[in-house]
Amino acid sequence: MDEVLRQYFDWDQAQPYFGDLARGFWVTIQIAFLAEVICLSLGLVLALMRQAGRGATTRGGRIGGRIVRGIAIVYINVFRALPALLVLLLMAGSFPFLPIPVIQDLTAFQIAFLALGIVYAAYIAEVYRAGIESVDRGQTEAARSLGMSQRQAMRLIVVPQAVRRVLPPLMNDFIALTKDVALVSVIAVGDVVSVARDAQSVTFNSSTLVAAGLFYLVFTLPLIWLLDRIIAREQRRTGFIGMAGP
């Protein structure tokens, strides 16, 4: 029994690595937030591209809309279908060798958050889309009847309401993204999981991985708790059960 406990909870084994683990978790958090910024903005762009051409009155507008929509749909479906790990390995393994100025100079850290941001943008775009499509058509009609363009109606009327509605699933995806930062342990960026695993391979003891898990819990459990509170409040207020995330 002692043997078992020591494998996971040996403080003496984990303690020397504590500083490294803390630094590693700081890297994890940075990657999570930077990737989140990318996927929130790119996801919104993709969601808006998916609505392009709605309400177009000219033939050119309709055809242009169809092309823009097509690009967005291909992006969203491809990145939802590919494993994030594969995208990460592909980018990290090839970018340094490309004769393209900015891209070949990207550090492993930059590639890490870019890859996660690019992949998660596809999921986020779908969340935004659900929100946009849940806003009553009468809202757009009222805006258009006041002389607003389709773009103004989207920006001022539809998107603000949509984002408010999808806040819970967006938070859910942020939690999922934070956990998926563990994937970057396969490239050399020094995130908390890679630090813990390196230590484990030296000590043959898993306590550092357990410690990494604790770092994660300290960060994600409050987020989950906050998310549940927001959903509960939303339900009390509207009687509407928020959309579940993936």
């Binding site: 809202q139 009609e141 009222a142 002389g147 309401q161």
Partner: peptide, 24 residues
């Protein structure tokens, strides 16, 4: 064809059965 509908539409007010006020 080619007329700016937005510009003309602002000269007409419309009120709907379901009000359609902006809730936010």
């Amino acid at each position: 064809p080619g007329v700016s509908v937005d510009a003309l539409r602002r000269r007409l007010g419309m009120v709907f059965q379901q009000f359609n006020l902006f809730p936010h």
